[in-house]
Design a protein around this nucleic acid. Structure first.
Lengths: 303, 303
DNA sequence: AGAGGTTACGGGCAGCGTAAGGATC
DNA sequence: GATCCTTACGCTGCCCGTAACCTCT
């Protein structure tokens, strides 16, 4: 019996197929077949029922999987507790929503890199819907996205919310929402849809909306006078300083709720640690923003 | 990280030396060295402190050993619960006191062989003192011996006691203990010493004792008229039928207490199972003996 | 026919034992 | 110098991937 055999067996059990496990583990399908065969020979009992399409566990297979899960949990704990963070060598496939990229992602990566210098990153920026999908496909280890993901298999660490604000071009003092386009997030995102619903309720169907999958492009459009924007307040403070200004049409969209989400089963200790660090950094960032915002408001009042 | 590395690490930790672990595991000493080195490289942290004679665990080593113990416990449970007994292939090094050999060992081996046909035995018959020693040296997996062994590392399953009885040659109606030798167990056993002390207290130093490391030889000596014997009652009933008889000099030695003892750490599931089976068989055997003895007494009374 | 699993087979490399080389008492 | 561990170095054998084969729907 080897850990590799047990790990392989668990993937076969979880995914319900040798083929799928092989794909997941980046090895050939016969290799997986062989590992299972060796494990069965070692234990002297069949573990898989190969009668139907794919495979299912035998009674012994079920018992084994329980104990094997325990073992893998202990292994994870070893990797998390015994290995000093600065010697952790791993790959963290990180999915990030653009709002995060534009706010505290650099700070987060810096901190993570400082404590875990040997961990390599693979960062993909995408809309939360796709990130969630990749998380389920297990092609992402951790997603910093609009959340939480309400699925039993996913662990969510809640992050500070982002308050939304209206932005106008600096030379458009009193925008009329029924006449200028409203620019916001990508069409397939939740804030876009909430905004659209709200706008329709308030102003009817005449509202024109532009969506941008790039936040900086969205801000650029506002700055260029193409329309008004609905974006997180903290982003507006630095994306186009001097070219845009906040305004208040009388109502605000609901704040954006974010989470650091990762698959809980099998648990990835690094992802869990990184998620906690993300919360830490994000909360610091939120405090700083509030402080600087207060300062700015104070300054603005004087101005 | 492999199970073999963890298992090796635990032996090194337990025995406090790479050399000792290698000896225990029947591999070369550099092989153990290398396994530890690989494990340390994998975890990116030293696990052993090699400054002094032998080795001691670092802080990380202690943490690892806790988790590794957990893992090995799970592995043991797999071997015990998932593997069907009839497919268990293992070596059970069994140490047996001769009293057991002469009473229920055959029945025990038969039952064990029936439930665990693929387990091979290595049986050594010796006096309990030596069996205990070999248990500590880990050259025995299970000892059926006079017990219990009062050491924190040893698990004891208590077995039925053996009542002692006095035996005389059939043609020596009223033996005089001050004039005929008393024959019993080997000189280095507890019953021999208890008997000797008791005899000295009752009859003074004039008593002559013969000891035999072989029970059948002891009985043979009694049958041949060399002296009287003190042996378990149930054995006398069949060792020399017709040539010896019980008699009562007015007092009886204390019964012999037996146990099935095995090392509890690391736990050997097969040894534990076998110990339970031993208790079962021994208790059945005791019940049968009592029954046949009652029958015989009834017959004797009629005779 | 195609999806999913097993068997067959050559090749690479992980890990073993032997033997020699430090370090520490 | 004795004891204990590490390093060096061939060699074996395990396990992988490729390819062909089997077996269901």
């Amino acid at each position: 019996m080897t850990l590799e055999q047990l790990r392989t067996f668990l993937w076969v059990a979880r995914l319900g197929g040798i083929r799928r496990a092989a794909l997941q583990m980046n090895v050939s399908q016969p290799a997986v077949s062989n590992r299972i065969a060796l494990l069965e020979a070692d234990l002297g009992t069949p573990l898989l029922d190969r009668s139907r399409k794919g495979v299912s566990l035998t009674k012994q297979g079920v018992m084994l999987s329980n104990h094997a899960e325990q073992i893998m949990q202990s292994v994870e704990r070893i990797r998390a507790e015994v290995v000093p963070p600065e010697n952790m060598t791993a790959l963290l496939r990180l999915g990030v929503a653009e709002t995060i990229v534009q706010s505290w992602l650099p700070a987060f990566l810096g901190r993570l890199r400082a404590t875990h210098p040997k961990v390599t990153f693979e960062i993909s920026v995408d809309i939360s819907r796709n990130l969630r999908e990749h998380l389920f496909e297990r092609t992402l280890d951790l997603a910093l996205m609009m959340g939480p993901v309400s699925d039993y298999s996913v662990e969510n660490v809640m992050l500070p919310q982002f308050e939304m604000a209206w932005f106008r071009p600096i030379d458009m003092p009193r925008p009329d929402l029924t006449r200028v386009p409203v620019i916001s997030y990508h069409r397939d995102t939740r804030p876009y849809h909430e905004l659209r619903t709200e706008l329709q309720q308030r102003y009817g169907n005449g509202i024109q909306m532009f969506s941008s999958s790039s936040l900086s492009a969205g801000f650029e459009m506002v700055a260029a006078g193409l329309g008004v924007g609905v974006f997180p307040r903290t982003l507006g403070q630095r994306m186009q300083p001097g070219r845009i200004a906040e305004f208040d049409p009388g109502w605000m969209p609901t704040p954006l709720s974010f989470s650091a989400s990762y698959i809980g089963h099998p648990r990835d200790a690094l992802a869990a640690k990184a998620a906690d660090l993300a919360r830490e950094v994000a909360e610091e960032h939120a405090r700083l923003r509030v402080a600087s915002q207060t300062a700015r408001q104070a300054f603005g009042a004087k101005d």
